[in-house]
Design a protein around this nucleic acid. Sequence first.
DNA 1: CAGTCGATGTACT
DNA 2: GTACATCGACTGG
Length: 200
Amino acid sequence: MTFLPPDFYLRPTLTVARELLGKTLVRRLDATTLSGRIVEVEAYHQHGDASCHCRNGPTARNEVMFRAGGHLYVYFTYGMHFCMNVVTEEEGIGAAVLIRAIEPLEGIEIMRQHRKGDKPDRGLADGPAKLCQALAIGREENGIFLDGSVAGILDAPVVPDGELQRSSRIGITLGRELPWRYFIASSPWVSRARPSGERK
DNA sequence: CAGTCGATGTACT
DNA sequence: GTACATCGACTGG
């Protein structure tokens, strides 16, 4: 198995976000492997992005985002949820791509157990906190490098432009004018078609 | 279907 | 104190 090399992540954040669509996110847990196809992402950047955790410079929480591309930034929010991001660009730049939804591929029954309940497959990982729950990603995984030992991403052909859609990012107030959410238009596995309140 | 709202911990003002 | 890159349960149409 060949995981994406560091060079993949050491590029402009929007490029990495765009190219992460269609790739396979892999999570190794003991003897089992969980995986899914990335169908929805959002970019965040220290500069020019009022909603980025790094907008005011380094802090204890966002330190991982300033590391070199290829690390995993996991943060805790709303008192109960984790979200995972792929760090991008060179060390010293605070930028990352939030993984918002995957299409479950391997280990679906394990994901269902992690999600506690008898959820339909579509509800297993169609949201940033749901996907972390399904893949058992939490505090422990913050700061790991995506070399495949704990988690990693496998290459896959780039999704053609015609299958892509962009929108403003979900659940933020500042920076909602930036069209930094990318998703696969026809995929039934995305969290939603468009941000709520946004019209067709 | 869409919209509203409470849960619940923590980083930061 | 307040806001929060969310979710699930609930309401009304």
